[in-house]
Every structure is written in structure tokens, then in C-alpha cells.
Simulated assay, not measured.
Amino acid sequence: MKNILSINKQAIYGGLITTTIIALGVFLLGNISGYEAKKLLTSSMQGLNMLCNTIVLASATILALLLTLLGISTGSETKLKETHYKQVLNIAKFDTILFISALVLFQFFNIPITEADNVDVSWYKYIYWATLFSSSVISGMMVATVLMLYGTVSNIIAIVGLKKSDHRLLIDDDEEDDEDKTTKEP
């Protein structure tokens, strides 16, 4: 876990900043009554559904793009360090969590809660805050995922496209010799 945080520090900070900004905007709305929350929930459900739908589609697309990235990584003439593949695996894990979270929220937002007669009006305030908080979290996660993907893609561009021979993710000759020695020893 510590390695994931250290490698993807900028992406995680970007996601946290996004979540904080959105949550701060929600917080500035102030205290609302249950009836106001019910009205706001009714008007915001379509947008929340669209957000979740977009994130589900984007995260599924990102998983498919990671396969392409792996094809480029393994098909290149250069040998990449294990760190690159761990970074791709971390993006896949994070993106899968995002996909599942957005899908669950999408299903939750499709429940016609504002039309239910047996829900006490005071509960709408909590439901409203929970939906806004959860949407800000998945938005931040989406930003973090895209930033992690950007970092990985820019590394591949530098190595494969720009043919940088001194990149930190390339196995140099000394490391290759050490790797050969460990595979030949019984």
C-alpha cells in the first residue's frame, strides 16, 4: 500500500484536491431542511445518474486501454522494470474499485426514493448529503485514475516513442546481467 502511495503521489493528491473542492462546494450550501433536500434530490438525480454512467463507461474504457498499454510495453524492444507493470496493475485495481463504486451508486441513484411515501422528510437531508459526498468521492477517484494513467502513458511515450535510453523504468545492462545470473543459478 505504501508503494502505491509513493508511486502515485501526484495522482492521489489530484484526486483528493478534486474531492475536497467538490465537497467544499457542497458544504457551502449550508444546512438545509428535509423538504428542501427532497426538492434538491429530485432535481439532481438526473445529473448524478449521468455522472455515474459516465464514470462507469470511462473506467471500463480505461481497463481496455490498459490491455493496449501492456501490449505496447511487452512488444517493445526495450526491457521494462517490474515497477512499470506494478504501476499498470495498481491503475487496474484502482480503476476496478472505481468501476464497482460508480455502478453501485448508479443503481442506488435509480431508486425512486423521492417518490416514496413512507420515508420521513427528515431523512432526505442525510440522503442528500450522502449522495453529494459519494459523488464527490467518485469524481476524485476518476481524476486520480486519469492522472495515474497519464503518468504511465507518458513514461511509455518517453521510452518507446522518444527512445529515451536513460529512463528510470528501463532495465540497464548491469541489472540485466544480475537478472541473468539469478535465472541461471539452480
Rank of each mutant, 00 (worst) to 15 (best):
residue 154 S to V: 13
residue 113 I to T: 14
residue 41 L to S: 04
residue 163 K to M: 04
residue 32 I to W: 12
residue 12 I to K: 03
residue 33 S to A: 07
residue 54 T to W: 11
residue 147 L to H: 06
residue 73 S to C: 02
residue 115 E to H: 05
residue 69 L to F: 08
residue 50 M to N: 14
residue 175 E to Y: 06
residue 69 L to P: 07
residue 3 N to I: 15
residue 67 L to Q: 08
residue 146 V to E: 04
residue 59 S to A: 06
residue 155 N to F: 05
residue 123 W to L: 01
residue 168 R to T: 14
residue 155 N to P: 03
residue 30 G to K: 11
residue 117 D to T: 07
residue 70 L to Y: 09
residue 168 R to L: 14
residue 32 I to R: 14
residue 20 T to C: 04
residue 18 T to L: 00
residue 74 T to Q: 06
residue 182 T to R: 08
residue 9 K to Q: 07
residue 2 K to Y: 09
residue 78 T to N: 14
residue 82 E to N: 10
residue 68 T to K: 03
residue 74 T to C: 01
residue 14 G to W: 05
residue 61 T to I: 14
residue 120 D to T: 00
residue 129 W to K: 15
residue 92 A to N: 00
residue 79 K to V: 11
residue 179 E to P: 06
residue 32 I to H: 12
residue 57 L to D: 08
residue 39 K to M: 08
residue 184 K to Y: 13
residue 13 Y to T: 04
residue 154 S to F: 13
residue 102 A to L: 08
residue 47 G to Q: 11
residue 141 M to V: 08
residue 59 S to K: 04
residue 86 K to V: 14
residue 54 T to A: 15
residue 177 D to L: 14
residue 82 E to L: 06
residue 14 G to R: 03
residue 25 G to F: 07
residue 85 Y to R: 02
residue 51 L to V: 08
residue 126 Y to F: 06
residue 169 L to Q: 09
residue 47 G to V: 07
residue 23 A to L: 15
residue 5 L to Y: 04
residue 96 T to D: 00
residue 84 H to M: 10
residue 135 S to G: 03
residue 43 S to Q: 12
residue 102 A to D: 05
residue 151 G to V: 01
residue 29 L to S: 11
residue 122 S to M: 01
residue 45 M to K: 12
residue 180 D to T: 02
residue 28 L to T: 13
residue 131 T to G: 00
residue 99 F to S: 08
residue 62 I to G: 01
residue 54 T to D: 11
residue 46 Q to M: 09
residue 140 G to K: 01
residue 115 E to M: 07
residue 92 A to W: 01
residue 13 Y to F: 13
residue 108 F to K: 13
residue 92 A to P: 00
residue 120 D to W: 00
residue 55 I to A: 03
residue 52 C to I: 09
residue 66 L to M: 09
residue 38 K to N: 05
residue 161 G to D: 13
residue 19 T to L: 13
residue 73 S to I: 00
residue 110 N to T: 11
residue 117 D to I: 10
residue 26 V to I: 12
residue 161 G to Y: 13
residue 180 D to G: 00
residue 174 D to M: 01
residue 142 M to P: 00
residue 58 A to H: 03
residue 169 L to T: 09
residue 23 A to G: 12
residue 45 M to F: 10
residue 97 I to S: 10
residue 127 I to K: 04
residue 121 V to L: 01
residue 152 T to D: 08
residue 62 I to H: 01
residue 71 G to C: 04
residue 99 F to W: 12
residue 63 L to M: 15
residue 18 T to F: 02
residue 110 N to Y: 09
residue 60 A to S: 12
residue 8 N to R: 06
residue 127 I to V: 05
residue 50 M to H: 14
residue 90 N to K: 01
residue 9 K to A: 06
residue 17 I to D: 04
residue 158 A to H: 11
residue 38 K to T: 05
residue 135 S to W: 00
residue 1 M to A: 03
residue 28 L to I: 11
residue 58 A to E: 02
residue 139 S to E: 04
residue 174 D to Q: 06
residue 123 W to T: 02
residue 70 L to T: 11
